[in-house]
Computed example of a mutant assay.
Amino acid sequence: MSETRTGRALHAIRTRGARFARDAHGVAAIEFALIAPIMVLMLLGATFYFDATRDRARVERAAYVIADSVGRKQTVDTTFLDLMNSLALNVAKSNDTPEIRVTSVSRVSLLELKVDWSYPTGTFAALKSSDIPALGYPVSIPVGGSAIIAETRATYTPTFAMFGVSKRTHTGVSFARPRLVGMISKTN
């Protein structure tokens, strides 16, 4: 009798074990629990990358729009350049207030560039002639010609600060040649 009970018990264990091995209930939940954190991290990473790339492109676009707008003028004044600062704020749409520096540069000789005027905002300093070589900008101006250099800068703060990613500064630089005059002058 004892062997029969043992035999039945072993048979029941084998049957239940086999049934448990074949049972697929809960497999999807376990797979989801394993995959979901990875998918969420991928989504957050893609969101961060898209947001940072979009912010950088907007800051660069603001520099282009400012250089193009100034290049279409014959003279500029502080009021117009303040307007360009507001334009940078609207174009960049950064989560930080963008700073601009608009500079008129002319070529005196083959080896010498001269700053005619410079308009900085925020922490930008006015550009000096001695600063131009250190910037490394590829300024291609014929002797006697001039160009506008528009620089924008904004600090990007990521929505999700993960994996040690913190604030970063996005910059944009654009060059434009004056369209209507040889050199754009600045009043007041």
Rank of each mutant, 00 (worst) to 15 (best):
A9G: 01
A12V: 06
A12G: 02
R22E: 10
H25A: 14
I30R: 01
E31Y: 04
A33R: 10
L34E: 05
I35T: 13
I35C: 06
P37V: 01
M39G: 03
M39K: 02
A46H: 02
A52Y: 06
A52T: 08
R54E: 13
V59F: 07
R61C: 05
A62E: 03
A63W: 00
I66L: 02
S69V: 02
G71M: 10
G71I: 10
G71P: 05
T75G: 05
D82T: 08
L83G: 12
M84D: 06
M84R: 02
S86M: 03
L87V: 15
L87S: 13
S94G: 09
N95E: 11
D96T: 13
E99H: 11
I100F: 07
S104H: 07
V105G: 08
S109C: 03
L110W: 12
L111S: 15
S118Q: 07
F124K: 02
A125G: 06
A126R: 06
L127Q: 11
K128P: 01
S129G: 14
I132E: 05
P138A: 15
P142Q: 12
V143Q: 11
G144H: 14
I149R: 05
I149P: 14
R153K: 15
T155E: 13
Y156P: 08
F163C: 01
T169K: 09
T171M: 10
G172H: 06
P178Q: 11
R179Q: 15
K186W: 15
